[in-house]
Write a protein that binds this DNA or RNA. Structure first.
Lengths: 149, 149
DNA sequence: GCTTGTTAGTTACAAAATCAACTATTACAA
DNA sequence: TTGTAATAGTTGATTTTGTAACTAACAAGC
């Protein structure tokens, strides 16, 4: 009855999810414990930290996050004084988001953690493996659904 | 204000999640459209298809899924006649899960789709990249949270 | 100017995931 | 035995996500 003809653990969507979850766990614990953030909130914080001022939809575009997720994350981050919002005077639909000083300190902290964490994750890999891994993952992340039948 | 010192898109937990999501999308669409399954249900179905009869906690152990997720997935799969449950006579806490004929046909179908899909995902990669990718991802999937500060 | 369509962002409701508490059964040691 | 702990699995309450409908502001053609 078992199917020796297919190795589930090597099926890429499954394997990628396992790797992603396992390798996110300990970092997730840190931004949750230190700042009470969810994944969505961490992502918004980092986008603002890395790219500077952005609007919600710019973040959504870059992070592949739906606008409702971002809306809620921004609301939380604003309530907790990590982020401030400012209406665009030219186009009053737009809101420019920026980190507060407080938010910037949180970003600096987590950003340092992230760098050490990334180093830890890859310390078992060769130089070649590290480079190839990121290159291949970027290709896969750019995969847009298309027909394959 | 922007931080040129950190490339978010190369941060492994983030990059892995992006790759995992992008590369799961089209496959997810198929098991959802054809069989109305969720990710959890698809995973249980595949575990039973690949490994044969299993208990819920064996699946949880292999798939790194919480028992409540599995409990609910099994309930759905049983309602929809993909799976049958049988009490263990020796230890009446245990339930052995197996695919019905109907469930097996669904597995066979999706399993074929999965193989073609995997081939499509990796068609842009070299032989070396493919092998290294799966090897490295398996290492990362085995990452257990530990101290890195 | 007006209508029609588009974009930015929010809100409401439904679906799903998470967490804790629960039942039932077995293990095991006093 | 019998009392305590452990394991398998389920259920309920809460949180988070997903989907669709919504408001507000702008754009472009007539």
């Amino acid at each position: 009855m078992p199917d020796d003809n297919f190795d589930l653990n090597l099926f890429l969507p499954y394997l990628l999810n396992q790797a992603a979850e396992a390798s996110s766990l300990a970092f997730q614990q840190i931004y949750k414990d230190r700042y009470g953030m969810l994944r969505t909130e961490w992502r918004v914080l980092f986008h603002l930290g890395v790219y500077g001022q952005m609007t919600a939809s710019e973040i959504g575009l870059r992070a592949n996050m739906h606008k409702t997720k971002i809306s809620r994350a921004v609301q939380k981050l604003t309530e907790r004084r990590f982020v401030t919002r400012a209406r665009d005077e030219g186009d009053r639909r737009l809101e420019h988001l920026t980190l507060t000083d407080f938010g910037h300190r949180a970003y600096d902290d987590l950003h340092r953690v992230a760098q050490r964490y990334d180093a830890m994750l890859t310390e078992g890999l060769t130089e070649v493996e590290r480079d190839m891994l990121r290159g291949v993952l970027q290709k896969l992340a750019a995969t847009r659904p298309r027909d394959f039948t």
